[in-house]
Design a protein around this nucleic acid. Structure first.
Lengths: 229, 229
DNA sequence: ATGCGGAATGTGGAATGCCAAATTATTTTC
DNA sequence: GAAAATAATTTGGCATTCCACATTCCGCAT
């Protein structure tokens, strides 16, 4: 009787998520040409949902429309990273402020749980897990701010700033630091200390930016990219 | 020789712009159902570009996808307006800061020209023109910041905050004030006085928000909307 | 009358085909 | 052999068609 679970997810959604993930995880190198027909064939679907997905990702700035025709994975430059983090530095503290006015024990609990999990990931040296927990931490905070408007802006900035995928230049040191910083933030939230919370978030993001730039240096020094301009 | 102006504009682009404009100008009331087939017929094109346009506007938050099926013009609430202006209050001062580091006589000239034009519009009581000049003023400033990243974020916030179209509750008083505020901003830019420029921009946006909220009150008091909840 | 089941309708999702613009390959010409 | 002309291919835009899912409507049975 039962056989065909309704496939509730639309193909467009799936294609978008798959492509977005592939781009963010660096499985498709920046600059790579993206061809509707090819992608459609690879995914075993028609061009239509792929077409929609590509156009969606163009809006998200993960894909660029080439001047004459075609699509390509967006490049991201040092300048962009700095700008994106500067924007996050303006918006995420705002999220912290708003979160505090809606703070609840359950949220604190979630945040602490998240930190615990990240510690476990660290002990297992599971980079993917660490990244995931990091993303989740900021999402919990964001949802606590209870503003879908603010959320959409911050998420956009986060996605873009992740576009420069770090080739698992792992980060045991940085992770230890991140965990400490997250803890500081949660402590401030727990005390409903707006000033401290905002400050710690600001510092957290500043450190993240500097770390990113550091990686970028060492990366462009020996990576596939340009030499040293 | 010449005959076929390249028709470089794609139908999708046209449909998107037309729809976006119609929504922002309030020609289509919030909550109105948007049907692909109907719109396509009205525009004399096929569903495909309309489909793309709708999905694009969903990403822009001008259109909402209804839970089960269909699209509708997005509603915007008091809470959203406040949040959007709060975000602009964080980002546009940033644009001012960046603009100052790239400031040039030609930009100052453009800004002054814009203010002059707005004054002319005011004397002719041309509301549409006033609005246009206002939008243009912020765009000139934004382009001076020379950051497509920041620009995309601010433009998104501006578009959304415009979604609550004011039913030409005109604004002669406010316009006089806006012109004065724009002048103050330009003066600060001309002197490359970052602090003053940021402050004046902040004040400008704060006033804009308060004005918006005032209109919203009087509007919901006698408008077509709900009575007095 | 009321409640239930099935058909008709509304509506977006997806597949497919054709077309135009641009790029690339190939041939022609000097 | 090089440059110009032309043909072939690539690729996305758009139209059309079919389909799946939900809602609405209508008639039948109780």
């Amino acid at each position: 009787m039962i056989e065909k679970l309704p496939v509730s997810k639309k193909l467009r959604q799936l294609a978008t998520e798959e492509l977005r993930a592939a781009i963010l995880e660096g499985k498709i190198a920046p600059g790579t040409r993206l061809v509707e027909r090819t992608l459609a064939e690879e995914m075993g679907i028609s061009r239509t949902p792929v077409h929609d997905a590509l156009n969606r990702l163009v809006v998200e700035n993960l894909v660029k429309k080439l001047p004459n025709n075609g699509f390509a994975v967006a490049q991201i430059e040092r300048k962009d990273i700095i700008e994106l983090y500067t924007i996050r530095l303006r918006l995420e503290p705002l999220a912290v402020e708003w979160a505090i006015s809606h703070i609840s024990p359950s949220i604190i609990r979630k945040l602490k749980k998240n930190i615990e999990r990240m510690e476990k990931c660290l002990s297992k040296s599971d980079i993917g897990c660490i990244k995931e927990m990091n993303i989740q931490f900021h999402q919990i905070l964001l949802s606590a701010a209870q503003s879908h408007v603010l959320a959409s802006f911050i998420e956009q900035a986060q996605i873009n700033s992740r576009l420069f995928r770090i080739r698992s230049l792992s980060a045991p040191n940085r992770t230890t630091q991140v965990i400490a910083e997250h803890k500081t933030i949660v402590e401030a939230l727990e005390k409903a200390d707006v000033k401290a919370a905002v400050e710690s978030m600001t510092e957290h993001l500043t450190n993240a930016l500097n770390w990113r730039l550091l990686l970028l240096e060492s990366h462009s020094g020996n990576g596939v990219e340009n030499e040293d301009t």
